[in-house]
Amino acid sequence: MINKEPVITVKNMVKRFGTFVANDNLNFEVYKGEIFGFIGANGAGKTTAIRILCGLSTPTSGEMNVAGYDIYHQTEKIKKNIGYMSQKFSLYEDLTVAENIRFFGGVYGMKITERKARTEEMLERLDLMAFKNRKIGDLPLGWKQKLAFSIAILHNPKIVFLDEPTGGVDPITRRQFWNLIYEAVQKGITVFVTTHYMDEAEYCDRVSIMSEGQIVALDTPENLKKQYNAINMDEVFLKIAR
């Protein structure tokens, strides 16, 4: 599934806010079709890096390429080729399910016929047809998150960035959410995900661990467990971050 063809390339990425170094010389590649886990303590610099990779913030220095486009000069192209969702912002609460889909389809520049076909297919698959005209605010959190993810990949992006997508979600929905991630990967979408649930780190093909602005470990969960002599990723994380 993974053919080591990079869809994200990061070389010497630095981001400073005044004297504070949020990202201190990051170097990594994300391959096409992989689930790339981005783990780290609060304030380690994860969100800063994601914002740069999504074209929302300019790095201080370094070379970065996302989905084949340069991070300095082609941010609009990048935005068309990625999807994004987070726990904090996903969908508009005051719009209905259908209106949200229409809105995001429009933002991503999808053709009307394509959007309509995909909407039907998506609502069918999520079992949400009956709730098409319900406001997002009335839906349970778990449904919202599943819907938000499906909308983030509605335009079939090359990469989808998920920033703590499962925070506070019940354990059944959390697993259904990961099944959606696997399905997206099977369609060839690359997944870049952050999480505080260490069992979810196990579901990633590779995991990078950030601490104080630097990447201190990057490998498959299996290799990391071996390297740190740990029984699970929780232990790996504790050993590294403490």
């Binding site: 303590a41 726990q87 506070g168 504790l238």
Partner: peptide
């Protein structure tokens, strides 16, 4: 009320 939500594994411990 949810003092550890969104907090990393080390700070939670």
């Amino acid at each position: 009320d949810e003092p550890t939500t969104g907090v990393d594994a080390v700070s939670r411990k």
